[in-house]
Protein backbone atom coordinates (compact mmCIF):
# COMPACT_ATOMS: atom_id res chain seq x y z
CA UNK A 1 0.00 0.00 0.00
CA UNK A 2 1.39 3.37 -1.00
CA UNK A 3 1.32 6.63 0.96
CA UNK A 4 -1.42 8.19 -1.21
CA UNK A 5 -3.73 5.27 -0.63
CA UNK A 6 -3.10 5.30 3.12
CA UNK A 7 -3.57 9.08 3.28
CA UNK A 8 -6.77 8.67 1.25
CA UNK A 9 -8.16 6.04 3.59
CA UNK A 10 -7.21 8.17 6.58
CA UNK A 11 -8.97 11.28 5.28
CA UNK A 12 -12.00 9.10 4.51
CA UNK A 13 -11.88 7.80 8.07
CA UNK A 14 -11.38 11.34 9.37
CA UNK A 15 -14.49 12.53 7.51
CA UNK A 16 -16.52 9.81 9.23
CA UNK A 17 -15.00 10.69 12.61
CA UNK A 18 -15.85 14.38 12.09
CA UNK A 19 -19.43 13.50 11.20
CA UNK A 20 -19.81 11.10 14.13
CA UNK A 21 -18.35 13.76 16.42
CA UNK A 22 -20.99 16.20 15.26
CA UNK A 23 -23.80 13.68 15.60
CA UNK A 24 -22.71 11.82 18.72
CA UNK A 25 -21.18 14.64 20.76
CA UNK A 26 -23.04 17.74 19.64
CA UNK A 27 -26.20 15.71 18.96
CA UNK A 28 -26.78 17.57 15.73
CA UNK A 29 -27.01 16.59 12.11
CA UNK A 30 -27.86 20.07 10.85
CA UNK A 31 -26.64 20.58 7.30
CA UNK A 32 -26.09 16.84 6.76
CA UNK A 33 -28.02 15.12 3.99
CA UNK A 34 -29.74 11.92 5.08
CA UNK A 35 -30.12 11.04 1.40
CA UNK A 36 -26.35 11.05 0.90
CA UNK A 37 -25.87 9.01 4.08
CA UNK A 38 -28.41 6.42 2.93
CA UNK A 39 -26.65 6.16 -0.40
CA UNK A 40 -23.31 5.61 1.33
CA UNK A 41 -24.78 2.84 3.48
CA UNK A 42 -26.01 1.19 0.29
CA UNK A 43 -22.64 1.75 -1.40
CA UNK A 44 -20.75 -0.02 1.39
CA UNK A 45 -23.30 -2.82 1.70
CA UNK A 46 -23.02 -3.54 -2.04
CA UNK A 47 -19.24 -3.23 -2.22
CA UNK A 48 -18.28 -5.22 0.84
CA UNK A 49 -20.32 -8.33 0.01
CA UNK A 50 -17.05 -10.23 -0.13
CA UNK A 51 -16.17 -9.27 3.44
CA UNK A 52 -16.38 -12.79 4.83
CA UNK A 53 -15.54 -14.63 1.62
CA UNK A 54 -12.46 -12.93 0.33
CA UNK A 55 -9.73 -12.00 2.79
CA UNK A 56 -7.23 -9.35 1.67
CA UNK A 57 -5.67 -8.11 4.90
CA UNK A 58 -6.60 -7.36 8.48
CA UNK A 59 -6.39 -3.66 7.66
CA UNK A 60 -8.84 -4.12 4.80
CA UNK A 61 -11.32 -6.12 6.88
CA UNK A 62 -11.24 -3.72 9.82
CA UNK A 63 -11.68 -0.66 7.59
CA UNK A 64 -14.61 -2.29 5.80
CA UNK A 65 -16.29 -3.06 9.10
CA UNK A 66 -15.71 0.50 10.29
CA UNK A 67 -17.24 2.02 7.15
CA UNK A 68 -20.20 -0.36 7.24
CA UNK A 69 -20.91 0.18 10.93
CA UNK A 70 -20.43 3.94 10.79
CA UNK A 71 -22.57 4.50 7.71
CA UNK A 72 -25.47 2.47 9.06
CA UNK A 73 -25.24 4.02 12.51
CA UNK A 74 -25.24 7.54 11.01
CA UNK A 75 -28.45 6.69 9.14
CA UNK A 76 -29.90 5.26 12.35
CA UNK A 77 -29.00 8.39 14.32
CA UNK A 78 -30.52 10.71 11.72
CA UNK A 79 -33.73 8.70 11.43
CA UNK A 80 -34.29 7.37 14.94
CA UNK A 81 -32.34 9.19 17.62
CA UNK A 82 -34.84 11.39 19.43
CA UNK A 83 -32.58 14.45 19.72
CA UNK A 84 -30.48 14.13 16.57
CA UNK A 85 -33.39 13.59 14.20
CA UNK A 86 -34.95 16.89 15.26
CA UNK A 87 -31.92 18.77 13.93
CA UNK A 88 -32.26 17.18 10.49
CA UNK A 89 -33.04 19.79 7.85
CA UNK A 90 -35.64 17.71 6.05
CA UNK A 91 -37.23 20.59 4.14
CA UNK A 92 -34.03 21.43 2.28
CA UNK A 93 -32.84 17.87 1.76
CA UNK A 94 -35.12 17.25 -1.19
CA UNK A 95 -32.85 15.59 -3.74
CA UNK A 96 -34.63 12.60 -5.29
CA UNK A 97 -31.88 10.17 -4.40
CA UNK A 98 -33.84 7.06 -5.35
CA UNK A 99 -33.53 8.11 -8.96
CA UNK A 100 -29.77 7.70 -8.74
CA UNK A 101 -29.95 4.05 -7.70
CA UNK A 102 -31.62 2.50 -10.75
CA UNK A 103 -29.43 4.13 -13.42
CA UNK A 104 -26.34 3.08 -11.45
CA UNK A 105 -27.63 -0.49 -11.27
CA UNK A 106 -28.42 -0.48 -15.00
CA UNK A 107 -24.96 0.87 -15.77
CA UNK A 108 -23.39 -1.80 -13.56
CA UNK A 109 -25.27 -4.50 -15.46
CA UNK A 110 -23.94 -3.11 -18.73
CA UNK A 111 -20.42 -2.09 -17.73
CA UNK A 112 -18.60 -4.34 -15.25
CA UNK A 113 -15.34 -6.18 -15.01
CA UNK A 114 -17.08 -9.53 -15.08
CA UNK A 115 -20.74 -10.48 -15.32
CA UNK A 116 -21.10 -12.09 -11.92
CA UNK A 117 -23.29 -11.05 -9.00
CA UNK A 118 -20.41 -9.74 -6.92
CA UNK A 119 -18.74 -7.91 -9.78
CA UNK A 120 -22.00 -6.24 -10.84
CA UNK A 121 -22.61 -5.18 -7.24
CA UNK A 122 -19.05 -3.89 -7.02
CA UNK A 123 -19.46 -1.79 -10.18
CA UNK A 124 -22.85 -0.59 -8.89
CA UNK A 125 -21.23 0.57 -5.65
CA UNK A 126 -18.53 2.43 -7.56
CA UNK A 127 -21.06 4.25 -9.77
CA UNK A 128 -23.33 5.04 -6.85
CA UNK A 129 -20.48 6.37 -4.72
CA UNK A 130 -19.53 8.73 -7.55
CA UNK A 131 -22.90 10.50 -7.36
CA UNK A 132 -23.82 9.91 -3.72
CA UNK A 133 -22.45 13.31 -2.66
CA UNK A 134 -24.94 15.21 -4.87
CA UNK A 135 -27.76 15.47 -2.28
CA UNK A 136 -25.21 16.74 0.25
CA UNK A 137 -23.86 19.38 -2.12
CA UNK A 138 -27.39 20.54 -2.94
CA UNK A 139 -28.21 20.77 0.76
CA UNK A 140 -25.03 22.78 1.41
CA UNK A 141 -26.05 25.27 -1.24
CA UNK A 142 -29.36 25.76 0.55
CA UNK A 143 -27.83 26.03 4.01
CA UNK A 144 -27.31 29.58 5.25
CA UNK A 145 -24.91 28.84 8.07
CA UNK A 146 -22.65 25.96 7.18
CA UNK A 147 -20.96 25.03 10.46
CA UNK A 148 -17.28 24.16 10.57
CA UNK A 149 -17.76 20.43 11.17
CA UNK A 150 -20.06 20.07 8.16
CA UNK A 151 -17.61 21.96 5.96
CA UNK A 152 -14.74 19.84 7.23
CA UNK A 153 -16.71 16.65 6.70
CA UNK A 154 -17.28 17.39 3.02
CA UNK A 155 -13.73 18.67 2.61
CA UNK A 156 -12.22 15.44 3.97
CA UNK A 157 -14.52 13.37 1.77
CA UNK A 158 -13.31 15.28 -1.28
CA UNK A 159 -9.68 15.05 -0.19
CA UNK A 160 -10.05 11.27 0.05
CA UNK A 161 -11.10 11.15 -3.59
CA UNK A 162 -8.21 13.34 -4.74
CA UNK A 163 -5.74 11.14 -2.85
CA UNK A 164 -7.22 8.01 -4.41
CA UNK A 165 -6.54 9.41 -7.87
CA UNK A 166 -2.93 10.10 -6.90
CA UNK A 167 -2.80 6.51 -5.59
CA UNK A 168 -3.99 5.17 -8.96
CA UNK A 169 -1.42 7.23 -10.84
CA UNK A 170 1.26 5.87 -8.52
CA UNK A 171 0.02 2.29 -8.90
CA UNK A 172 -0.20 2.64 -12.67
CA UNK A 173 3.53 3.31 -12.84
CA UNK A 174 4.61 0.86 -10.17
CA UNK A 175 2.35 -2.16 -10.73
CA UNK A 176 2.50 -3.90 -14.11
CA UNK A 177 -1.18 -4.76 -14.63
CA UNK A 178 -2.95 -2.15 -12.65
CA UNK A 179 -5.76 -0.90 -14.91
CA UNK A 180 -9.23 -0.44 -13.45
CA UNK A 181 -11.12 1.75 -15.91
CA UNK A 182 -14.38 1.57 -14.01
CA UNK A 183 -13.01 2.92 -10.76
CA UNK A 184 -10.80 5.46 -12.53
CA UNK A 185 -13.52 7.04 -14.65
CA UNK A 186 -16.09 6.97 -11.83
CA UNK A 187 -13.47 8.26 -9.39
CA UNK A 188 -12.55 11.18 -11.62
CA UNK A 189 -16.23 12.10 -12.10
CA UNK A 190 -16.70 11.88 -8.34
CA UNK A 191 -13.72 14.13 -7.67
CA UNK A 192 -14.84 16.72 -10.23
CA UNK A 193 -18.15 17.06 -8.38
CA UNK A 194 -16.18 18.49 -5.47
CA UNK A 195 -14.32 21.09 -7.56
CA UNK A 196 -16.84 23.86 -6.94
CA UNK A 197 -17.04 23.09 -3.23
CA UNK A 198 -13.24 23.02 -2.92
CA UNK A 199 -13.01 26.44 -4.56
CA UNK A 200 -15.38 28.08 -2.08
CA UNK A 201 -13.99 26.14 0.87
CA UNK A 202 -10.43 27.26 0.19
CA UNK A 203 -11.53 30.83 -0.49
CA UNK A 204 -13.43 31.02 2.80
CA UNK A 205 -10.43 29.59 4.62
CA UNK A 206 -8.02 32.00 2.91
CA UNK A 207 -10.15 35.06 3.52
CA UNK A 208 -11.12 33.86 6.98
CA UNK A 209 -14.84 34.20 6.34
CA UNK A 210 -17.69 31.78 6.92
CA UNK A 211 -18.20 29.16 4.22
CA UNK A 212 -21.16 29.86 1.97
CA UNK A 213 -21.98 28.34 -1.40
CA UNK A 214 -23.71 30.52 -3.98
CA UNK A 215 -27.15 29.21 -4.92
Amino acid sequence: MNAFRLAGDMTHLLSVVVLLLKIHTIKSCAGISLKTQELYALVFAARYLDLFIHFISLYNTVMKLVFLASSFSIVWYMRRHKIVRRTYDKDHDTFRHHFLVLPCLALALLINERFTFREVMWAFSIYLEAVAILPQLVLLQRTRNIDNLTGQYVFFLGAYRVLYILNWIYRYFTEPHFVHWISWVAGIVQTLLYADFFYYYIMSWKNNVKLELPA
Binding site: K64, F67, W122, S183
Partner: peptide, 10 residues
Protein backbone atom coordinates in the same frame (compact mmCIF):
# COMPACT_ATOMS: atom_id res chain seq x y z
CA UNK B 1 -6.81 -13.54 -15.90
CA UNK B 2 -8.03 -15.45 -12.91
CA UNK B 3 -11.66 -16.00 -12.05
CA UNK B 4 -11.90 -13.44 -9.29
CA UNK B 5 -11.11 -9.78 -9.75
CA UNK B 6 -8.87 -8.47 -7.01
CA UNK B 7 -10.42 -5.41 -5.41
CA UNK B 8 -7.93 -4.48 -2.74
CA UNK B 9 -9.14 -0.91 -2.32
CA UNK B 10 -11.88 0.28 -0.01
Amino acid sequence: RSDTVEHDEL
